[in-house]
Nucleic acid binder design. Structure first.
Lengths: 247, 247
DNA sequence: CGTGTTATTGACCAACATCAAACTTAGTGG
DNA sequence: CCACTAAGTTTGATGTTGGTCAATAACACG
């Protein structure tokens, strides 16, 4: 815990700052958190339904999702997570996982012992509050997805998701324009949005044809943000971002 | 804070006990919470999207839901709440509401000032933890609904919801068999499950014809729990109930 | 260059939506 | 106790979104 902060801890601190204002001692405490680093391959489960983990999993690099397999072998993806997110913060309070956390691309994460996190939240109520906020924002995103899958058309859902990911990347300062990687297959998009792969493909083509987006490989460019936002009925209020996060 | 506990506070304590073990001092503190009682009529909003409440709303009597209106005038219901639930616990941390809380039938609630709740959570970490747990369970229910709307058929979704409500009522000891009131119109069921009213109606008829349920008015009887549970792909694990809650 | 994964296409189909009307039920007031 | 009314439920006919299946084309990688 010298003066310098590792890039791993920096990721976490930057993320925390998108949801709360941190004092120097709080940042220092975060920077002192013990971390067990781990590289992971594509399609690895970082945590699995039924597990009772003793550590939380901070994403450092990559793109991961939370999901559950249903009775008939179908999959529902609940959320995507970006570097800086702690994907299983919930297991601090709910010991047994009711869903899994899986990597969509190779990446790197840091396991942080529950004991260290508990000590941190005991010493710094502001950090506890920030975690609490984070979990609530998580839930707000579930609600928004629920609204999408329940009541929005396939076109709206896909446009909405693209807007959401872009907005979150910007708030984390991982990008500053409307160009980013969406390292997700169309099948995975379907599992997140409650659509078939084929339909995802067709809708994406529509959005491209309409000039709202372009994409080569996983690189995605939002060509017309206002129209995409409108097409997706997207209002970022539910993300509860601290800073105004621009269009 | 005499020895006796009002029935209002009792409701809250009973609910809290479904998610955590409480000591006597903790129960006493809950019993001492200031409450502003209010009766409400059907179709009233108790809290509205965009509000920044200074009180939380504890349900004492009735059946309420959280919902959001979407761009095209459609409605998505996110959750149903039973007596004992604090429907907008989240506004303790996220000041502005991103959705509304509405009454489906006349009932009664108690508004509890945020200040009192904050003082409580400061003094009793176990209560803070219980609130935290409650919010996480809330999120788990959103995920389960998301999985339903995304990947389950209309028949599964409806069966699943009936199982869920019954299970939660039992955990709150508001019923002890498989008979209960579901004071919700078919239109409202549709808004919760992402279905049209007409389709809800037809599926309910199917479930009745198959002998899984019967209903007269809002009174619903689960005639064949094992089959209904199977039809709904229902596994109560996601509710994270403390006590084993019956078959 | 193969080889496996992902994207794209086409033909066809099913689940569920929409629209509109009729029927029930539960209140309400006389 | 009986009309009257409004809300909710049920039914039928018809339409559409999006699913399924199966084949082909594009890539990415060793």
């Amino acid at each position: 815990m010298a003066g310098s902060t590792s890039s791993e801890h920096g990721r976490l601190i930057r993320k925390m700052e998108t949801i709360a204002v941190l004092t120097e001692p709080e940042k220092a405490a975060l920077a002192g958190l013990p971390m067990r680093l781990k590289d992971f391959a594509e399609d690895t489960d970082l945590v699995r339904e039924g597990d009772t983990p003793q550590e939380c999993c901070l994403i450092l690099e990559g793109f991961i999702c939370r999901y559950k397999l249903l009775g008939q072998g179908q999959r529902q993806i609940f959320s995507f997570h970006l570097p800086g997110d702690i994907a299983d913060l919930q297991c601090l309070q709910l010991s047994v996982m009711d869903h899994s956390v899986g990597a969509l691309v190779p990446g790197r994460c840091a396991y942080i012992p529950h004991t260290a996190l508990r000590e941190l939240t005991d010493r710094f109520p502001a950090i506890a509050a920030a975690f609490w906020r984070d979990i609530l924002i998580d839930a707000a995103i579930f609600r928004e997805w629920l609204a999408g899958v329940g009541r929005r058309t396939a076109h709206q859902r896909i446009a909405h998701l693209i807007c959401e990911v872009c907005t979150r990347l910007k708030s984390l300062k991982l990008i500053d324009d409307h160009v980013f990687d969406l390292p997700v297959t169309q099948a995975e998009l379907g599992d997140a949005l409650g659509l078939s792969t084929v339909h995802v493909n067709r809708v994406l083509q529509d959005l491209r044809r309409a000039g709202l987006i372009t994409s080569k490989g996983r690189r995605l460019v939002i060509e017309d943000w206002p129209k995409l936002q409108e097409a997706g009925d997207f209002d970022p209020a539910y993300l509860h971002l601290r800073a105004p996060e621009g269009r």
